[in-house]
Amino acid sequence: MTSMVRKALQFGLFLLLAGVIWFSFSTPAPQQQIGQASRIFYYHIPMAWLTVVAYAVSLIFSIKFLRTKRELDDYRALWAAEIGTMFCVLATISGSLFAKVTWGVYWNWSEPRMLSIFLLLLIYGAYLALRAAIPNPERRGILGAVYSIFAFPTVPFFIFVMPRIMPSLHPTNSVVNQNLKFTMGLEVRLIFFVSLFCFTVIFFWIYFLGVKLHRLKLEHAES
């Protein structure tokens, strides 16, 4: 890809995102009952989505690393996890702010989605803490990969199984369910999916930049 095309694409991405930002604020709020705060839906959900995507990428390379034992694969797993952690923190904060504005509380354990994002935050945090505690690089990669894989089954447990199990004494703030299933008008759907697209591309851009940089470091060290 020539650098002209590359620059054009990057600029195009920025324009797209600028468009998303513009229209996310200028068009009517996506969810009328909640009002202006519902606009966060255009940003919060892509971020939550990306923390899962990042975990998936990290997981794939964790598995790969266990087989190849190449440092670059371990780095790929780590880097994806670091970006994922960032998105996870952002998603948790934005979700919490949304909760405050909509339901008056910053946090509510009975809301399965809050529990899920919190769980992801814990897993990411534990993963990074584990890695920090191991001096030997190869062991670090192996144990990190093992933990990453081991922690993974709990994620679908939470996303799919928990909502059925959660004590129904405290009703899930049903507005959130409505949020995801609400009849998205064409306009809303467009802005949302473009936003999702933009953030996904940004994630992979940052990801590949980091990997390339690391590879260059490795090659430089060898020479």
């Binding site: 990057q10 991405l13 995102l17 513009w22 930049l209």
Partner: peptide, 20 residues
């Protein structure tokens, strides 16, 4: 938002160029 994201993009843009 626009300003913040413009900043982020500028940073990424330059980083990308440097790596290239």
């Amino acid at each position: 938002n626009l300003i913040i994201w413009a900043g982020i993009f500028l940073f990424l843009f330059r980083l990308d160029k440097k790596i290239k």
